[in-house]
Simulated scan of single mutants.
Amino acid sequence: MSDHITQARPYARAAFELAREDSTLDGWSAMLAEAARLTADERVDMLLKDPRRTPKQKGEAFIELLGDLLPERGANFLMVLARQQRLPALASMSTLFETERAAFEQRVSVEIISAFELDEAQKDKLAQALTKRLNREITITTSVDKTLLGGVVIRAGDTVIDGSARGRLARLSSVLNH
């Protein structure tokens, strides 16, 4: 997978720039997401690994599979990927594209893990505080982890804020043992 990320990075950036220039971010997001889903399909994986098929045939097959989801320059993009034998990296390209898009649109997905179910008022209060702190539009997902004992753990991109009782106890233990 990390190899695919390395291969995918320049193509994801190029796709993002094309989408931004054409104001077709939604179309490119949809195409790349579907292409990522397709590469996970066993039959498509067999097609990509088939040595009897030329890169052109593989690219044309992807174009046909994606059909109406292709933005204006999407078919050309897929043919370049096929020639460079980068179609298997489409899932990584989709992920990297969405990361670029979120940064451009100043959005971030925030995961809030709490010891107990949060009510709407608590979610709203956390959303307002995080929007202000991160200076970005946020999308919140919540989950419950009873092992936290109390408090919350917040994950926003690479940032983790551990305000859980378990986390505080672990930090206290670390301080006391050193």
Rank of each mutant, 00 (worst) to 15 (best):
V110H: 05
Q85T: 05
F116D: 11
V152C: 08
P55I: 02
V108T: 12
A115W: 07
A121E: 10
L134M: 10
E17Q: 13
D158E: 09
L149K: 11
T139I: 10
L96E: 08
M31K: 04
N177T: 15
I161E: 01
A61L: 02
L87E: 02
A40W: 09
A156S: 11
V80F: 05
Q57G: 04
L130W: 00
G74L: 00
L32N: 03
T142V: 05
S114C: 07
V152E: 04
I63A: 07
A36M: 02
Q57V: 05
E21N: 14
T95V: 10
L25E: 06
M31E: 03
T141L: 11
K58W: 07
Q106P: 00
D41C: 09
D3N: 13
S2K: 15
A82D: 00
A15P: 02
R168V: 02
K56W: 09
E60Y: 02
S173P: 00
E117R: 15
N76L: 13
D158V: 00
K49D: 09
T159W: 14
V152R: 08
T99W: 10
K146M: 07
D68W: 04
T99S: 14
H178G: 14
R52L: 13
V108S: 12
A115I: 06
L69C: 06
E72F: 09
L90Y: 02
F104H: 15
G74A: 08
Q7I: 14
Q85D: 10
T54N: 08
I161P: 05
R107K: 15
F62W: 01
G157C: 06
S114K: 07
R101Q: 11
A165G: 04
G27T: 03
R20F: 05
S29G: 15
Q85V: 01
R52A: 12
G59F: 05
F97G: 01
R166Q: 12
A40K: 14
D3V: 09
P71A: 02
G151C: 07
T6H: 13
H178K: 14
V44I: 14
S143A: 15
H4R: 14
K132R: 15
S164I: 00
A103C: 07
T142G: 07
S143Q: 15
A91V: 01
S109F: 13
R20Q: 12
F97I: 03
R136E: 05
F62M: 05
A35K: 01
L81A: 09
F116E: 14
A156W: 08
F116M: 13
P71F: 01
A75G: 03
E21C: 06
E72D: 13
R171Y: 04
S164H: 03
M1W: 11
L169D: 08
E117H: 13
